[in-house]
Amino acid sequence: MTTPGQSEGDRARDEVLAGEYVLGVLSAPKRVEVEERIRRDRQFALIVRRWEQNLSSLNEEYEIVAPPSLVLPLIEARLFGEAQSRTSRPLAQQLWTSLALWRGVALASIFLLGGTLFFTSQQQEARPVAGGPSLVADLSPQPGIGTAAMTLAARYDRTSGRLSLTPVAAGAADQHSLELWMIKGNDPAVSLGILPADGQGSVTIPDKVRPQLSEGVTLAVSLEPYGGSPTGSATGPILAVGRTRAR
């Protein structure tokens, strides 16, 4: 990755350092240093990511070895807690109970409004949750190689419960819908509704969800079949993702 002001010598140095990191020959302190740089230097992160992809055919050298069966339950217990381990439950049961209702309402509004997609809920007219500062989030594709799908600016007005999105740069979406999700901690993503195909628009956050939509939650936009995910979980690629922060 050549950036303006960077000499070819610098580029060679970065390529070598990234390659050394991916090969794994560096010492522990040097690896920590490089990982630090990956986090703050997007260009350098791309170089590392590219070496990972380039050298990935060497992964064929590794054998396939079945791990002992106790490992997965241990991982799930650590991530989700013993009592909440839900891996044996069917996918449908993992949906937040009112999600289907919300999607139904969203779909109904599509028909009613002849293609103007927006999300609403029966609680829309309910008393707004008390104020606090507005939240904002920049949703963008994260560092990595590839096509930047879209970049959105989100703003959540706690008083009205309205979350507005404006595309900064959007890709074509054709016969698809953009679905907005909220992710908090380790809980399954909650659909916040369908956005118009260009990503511009706003959704009203139902009262139930408002207490959860706080600073630090993740908002993500995924590309779904027209009308939204048929399963209640995201089925398409995530186009943009970002965390909310107080404004």
Binding site: P188, S222, I238
Partner: peptide
């Protein structure tokens, strides 16, 4: 992508596919 949205069934499936490697 699904794991990013905290889909535990997808995580389980990902584990069964990728863990041996």
């Amino acid at each position: 992508s699904k794991v990013a949205l905290r889909d535990r069934a997808a995580f389980n499936r990902l584990y069964s596919l990728a863990a041996p490697k």
